[in-house]
Design a protein around this nucleic acid. Sequence first.
DNA 1: TAATTACATCGTAAAATTGCAATATATAAT
DNA 2: ATTATATATTGCAATTTTACGATGTAATTA
Lengths: 109, 109
Amino acid sequence: MGLTRSEIFTDEQNQLSTLLKAIAHPARIAILQRIIISNTCICGDLVGELGLAQATISQHLKELKLAGIIQGTIEGVSVCYCINPKTWKLLEEQLGGFLASYKGETTCC
Amino acid sequence: MGLTRSEIFTDEQNQLSTLLKAIAHPARIAILQRIIISNTCICGDLVGELGLAQATISQHLKELKLAGIIQGTIEGVSVCYCINPKTWKLLEEQLGGFLASYKGETTCC
DNA sequence: TAATTACATCGTAAAATTGCAATATATAAT
DNA sequence: ATTATATATTGCAATTTTACGATGTAATTA
């Protein structure tokens, strides 16, 4: 009916899928890459560089912030965004464990 | 308008987001974990174990197959699914590179 | 104080996702 | 040939996502 039945899955499965969903969009990947490159935080630059409307960028930033992947600090008139190291580490661990659990076996169908 | 503007992003960004979207659902994570555990492939078992309707499981399997993450082989009456090693490796590389590009810096906002 | 700048939020439309019952299909067993 | 079993497909409803114009808000500048 359009809503994910989270109750029937484990907390780990739900948490990982939430983090993945947050980064599973080309615009949000581009935003994260841009933040990572300019280690120091940017923001309004994204609007001019990505080719999406300001409202759209702001919405994507909100989603990344909601998932805890980035954090924003008010800096005068503008807002400075950067990676949240804690969540990034969590993502690396959870996802790394998940991906590494498959050992490319030879016995397959 | 409800449709992602893929044209304005790079092929790498689009490809990675497609793969991520495919695994960004608790049911599909659960399905992949189950396939990985029983290194040898299963299928109908999922319906009984996950608590989702047969049509729903079948649909999730279809999405994973479409993204190239799993592959299915007809085996008598049932179908045997397993991980597609090639795509899994691609995902590990692309995602690994992306996650590793952030070196938890100290200078942040 | 008024104007400007940077960003967030609201409202809305189009499209995609999630889930399931019902039905179709295809192979195996009787 | 008929029945049973396993999976796929169809059709539908509820919900979420994506995108953007318009508008609101908050801090800086004139």
